[in-house]
Amino acid sequence: MSRKLLVVSGAAVYLFLYLPLLIVVAYSFNDSKLNAEWVGFTWHWYKLLLDDDSMLKAAGNSLMIALTASFASTVLGTMAGYALYRYRLKLLPVLIMAPLAIPEILVGVSLLIFFVAINLTLGLGTIMLSHIAFCVGFVAIVVRSRLSGMDESLFEAARDLGATPWQAFRLVTLPLIAPGIVAGALLAFTLSIDDFVITFFTAGVGASTLPLQIYSMIKIAVTPEVNAISTLLMLLTLFLIVVASRVSPGSVRGR
């Protein structure tokens, strides 16, 4: 293919990728209820967000769920990532990869049946448990890849110098893989705060999160308030991605 054709078609695809998001951001500042004509600049929709109690509550829920789920899944995912690296295991690799490979809707639906079967009331708690379940695999993969880039002889050296396996892990391995763990935690946080499908099935009637709130707003009546919250959420995600890629380059590609 000729160079010119490639550049033109490549640029067109980049435009296709970014234009929709730019439109969402642009209309969040538009002084009109309709996402159609440009009328003028306003902060109105952002101010509206601050007065929207159900939106603030949903944001609070999302934050709490994401913090809890990312913490728990980072602990479990780090253990899993380390186990994958150090030992020859049969069950764990399957358990890590399978939830990532099957359609998300099935994970959501099966968790719904499960929680009802064990008589657990659907709500923030069940959302958290579900988020931990799907975040563990992502953290494990990030930590595992960080470990495989590590020089194994450093651990051996610590052992030769008389460190117990635990000391060698805590004083040598852990500091070396810390950036991978932090990147994994940020990844889990982003995945949790953005998740819609699994949350949708495990939330029950009362609990709401930001994506659920956005969903019901889109379904009922579209106003630029949705654009405003979307813009803020994109900024948050972008910020987390930049931090994650600074801490551990390469980890952002994992998704």
Binding site: V24, V222, L233
Partner: peptide
Amino acid sequence: VLLVILPFWSNFLIRIYAWMII
């Protein structure tokens, strides 16, 4: 490559919503 990945880090619903507007 990063420019290809970046948009799909935005919330899934936001990307659907964008097409609702367009």
